[in-house]
């Protein structure tokens, strides 16, 4: 079974990120690494391919400046190949434009039956791209998977909810978004890292994808970022003396947050 995993390459969250005041977007000119959210999808895909007794895992990504470091990490984990779409014309592309480009790239992967994504990226957080990809490809979409099984052309997903999980099934091909933290992503082995160097990595331009240039880039989006502001500084906490009612106050506080 061939599986595609959408893999976003993002600025290292350990480094202080910076917003470009001109474009009001995150600066992406430095080194990009594989988004941790996507490592769960890569791990899930590798496990599914192993369980199926074969099949390839292909990474699909859109990133500026032909950046491939994050994809190399995924290849080192065990993915067989990668497709990167990189084009100056894609700078500023919004979520829907991104979905169009990724869907086009996925269309170029032979025999892709299952598309895995994260539920959202760790830098953009729109959380809409997986469903948009599914709509564009005309596939069913299942979200927030905590586990995935494939038997006889059908995908069985345990779908995480606030109350527990739903059991959902749907026919292949389909798009499934994987909840962060549901599997333990493997660390690349030294041999895996060395092997990743020579794995196929197709680099496509916007024209190669066939996506209309008018629907991507700064001008192509149906949205505009009108302002950016610093997050408000954290306010001082509430302090009260425990006169014996401390427990009640804590419970009331947590209830208010809908934690208990």
């Amino acid at each position: 079974m061939n599986i595609v995993v959408c893999a976003k390459q993002i600025p290292d969250p350990a480094e202080p990120g910076a917003l470009d005041p001109q474009t009001k977007t995150l600066k992406r000119d430095g080194k990009l690494i594989l988004d941790e959210s996507d490592m769960y999808g890569v791990e899930m895909a590798l496990q599914l391919a192993e369980a199926a007794g074969g099949g390839e895992v292909t990474l699909v990504s859109m990133a500026p400046d032909n950046k491939v470091d994050g994809l190399r990490s995924g290849l080192a984990m065990g993915a067989a190949k990668a497709v990167l779409v990189s084009d100056p014309a894609l700078a500023g592309t919004d979520a829907l434009g991104t979905a169009k480009v990724l869907a086009a790239a996925i269309g170029k992967v032979d025999g892709a039956q299952l598309v895995l994504t994260a539920t959202e990226s760790s830098d953009g957080y729109t959380g809409t791209v997986p469903e948009q990809i599914a709509a564009i490809l005309g596939m069913p979409s299942i979200t927030f998977a905590k586990s995935i099984e494939v038997r006889d052309g059908t995908v069985y997903v345990k779908r995480q909810t606030d109350a527990g999980y739903d059991e959902v099934e749907c026919p292949l091909p389909c798009v499934v978004s994987v909840t962060a933290g549901v599997v333990e992503p493997r660390y690349p082995s030294f041999k895996g890292i060395m092997a990743a160097k020579s794995k196929p990595l197709d680099q496509l331009t916007l024209a190669d994808t066939g996506v209309d240039a008018g629907s991507v880039g700064w001008g192509g989006g149906g949205q505009e970022i009108v302002g950016i502001e610093d997050a408000p500084a954290r306010e001082a906490g509430e302090i009260f003396e425990d006169d014996g009612s401390g427990v009640d106050k804590i419970v009331a506080y947590l209830e208010n947050l809908k934690i208990v």
Partner: peptide, 17 residues
Amino acid sequence: DTLLGALEENARFTAEV
């Protein structure tokens, strides 16, 4: 590049495990 790339992956493993 290969050598520095390997160091990065090792660094993550070492720091986390």
